[in-house]
Design a binder for these strands. Sequence first.
DNA 1: GCAATCGTGTTATGAGATAACGTGACAAAC
DNA 2: GTTTGTCACGTTATCTCATAACACGATTGC
Lengths: 136, 136
Amino acid sequence: MNEHVHTTSELTKNQALVMGALSQSDSPLSAYTILDHLRDDGFRAPLQVYRALDKLVEFGLVHRLESLNAFVACRHPGCDAHQAIAFMICETCGQVNEISDTSLAERLKQLASKAGFALKKSTVELRGICSNCQAA
Amino acid sequence: MNEHVHTTSELTKNQALVMGALSQSDSPLSAYTILDHLRDDGFRAPLQVYRALDKLVEFGLVHRLESLNAFVACRHPGCDAHQAIAFMICETCGQVNEISDTSLAERLKQLASKAGFALKKSTVELRGICSNCQAA
DNA sequence: GCAATCGTGTTATGAGATAACGTGACAAAC
DNA sequence: GTTTGTCACGTTATCTCATAACACGATTGC
């Protein structure tokens, strides 16, 4: 499997179905919600969803939101920079915004190295109200 | 209830018990693990733990780790600055380090305000291997 | 007294995630 | 061309995490 060339055509059937469900939604979905969406497509058990999700996350096509126990499709269509650093999650409308901020990433690396900590993965999730929902 | 003066003496019995269990542990505990620790003290149901945890988190005495679904006692004995910004979680030994970094906090605020996002709460959790475990 | 509030206890249930087992497809090795 | 390994898939059962719904008792303020 190549590094970065994960187009839809390379996905297995189940992975493509899960990816499709996530892509169509404009807010995060839980594994069980995805399962419900895919019952007509033959999905029967949570594990079918979780296995597909595991791969999609591994490919960088999907992100897991820890604070929601839910998943979103990566919003970088060009698919070049999958490394989303942070997420802004609106508690009103549920929409999620991906942020790729270099200085934030740098600061996290600094903090880790200062502590002699071998950083593997960072989770940054900001909760609040998006500008749209504040206006409304 | 005052702002910042949450000493052990102000806690209810259940809150104090849960706080004690967390304080004694040097790594995060799940609600159900806490429950098991407190069975001898009369705890019977998860809800007793969760209710105490809710309050302790509200008081700032306990932090919830989203990526672990677990809880840790705040490591600031003086209890003055409860606002832990970030956590470094060792995947080998399970220990958790609290970080209060001003520049990180500032950057998060900047990012939010730049997007017109009303920030309520930020979750920053770094996963990796702590210096101790790397040495071993 | 009486209402309001709050912590508490109990049972049942909902939601998230994985273990353990077996099957079939496919490609590399021999 | 059969054997071996790998990988996606399907199914059942089970485990962990979290909350809904209801009832009781103590405390406070009026």
